[in-house]
């Protein structure tokens, strides 16, 4: 039961990121579908996307843990590994479950490129968020010291 609780709490902690990645993947797939003349995605494909998002979230926890400092930039060993492995894993899931079967040849590379850019922009967002929060924290610390 203890492992289940841990897994549950972990899932709750990454749920926002997973939802974000799900949106990115579903959006990319939706665009490919629209360009190819379709207008729907299978429920099973959506579930497979959720699986890919779990993998991305898991790798984020492992590679981009709490000690990550984005103040020096977003390009460093673990961030590059996360973007590359997440893109690779999602493309792997797409190939495994045949998401792009019957679609034009360009759709899979385009999907991978879109995912690569989106994940890189996610890192940039995390950097901006961390920097803004750091400024806010230090401003509050300065005010606290002045008041006391």
């Amino acid at each position: 039961m203890k492992w289940f609780r841990k897994l549950y709490v972990w899932s709750m902690n990454i749920k926002l990121y997973m939802a974000f990645y799900f949106f990115i993947i579903a959006f990319a797939m939706g665009i490919v579908e629209l360009i190819s003349g379709g207008d729907s995605l299978k429920l099973l494909t959506l579930l497979e996307m959720a699986l890919a998002c779990t993998v991305i979230g898991l790798m984020q926890i492992v590679l981009l843990n709490d000690s990550v400092d984005y103040s020096k930039g977003i390009v460093f060993g673990r961030s590059v590994a996360w973007v590359a492995l997440s893109t690779g894993a999602t493309v792997g899931v797409a190939l495994l479950f045949g998401w792009f079967t019957g679609y034009p040849a360009w759709s899979l590379p385009a999907f991978a490129a879109f995912l690569l850019i989106s994940l890189t922009l996610t890192l940039l967002g995390l950097k901006f968020e961390q920097e803004a929060d750091t400024v806010y924290l230090n401003e509050n610390l300065r005010k606290f010291k002045q008041k006391q």
């Binding site: 902690n13 981009l64 709490d66 400092d69 961390q130 920097e131 750091t134 924290l137 610390l141 010291k145």
Partner: peptide, 25 residues
């Protein structure tokens, strides 16, 4: 006097903090 529990095993004097940095999670 500015002391705060900052983890299960530590209480820090907030006046002794020079800088703070936001971390992940």
């Amino acid at each position: 006097l500015g002391f705060l529990r900052c983890s299960k095993s530590m209480a820090v004097n907030l006046h002794a903090i020079e800088a703070l940095k936001s971390g992940d999670n």
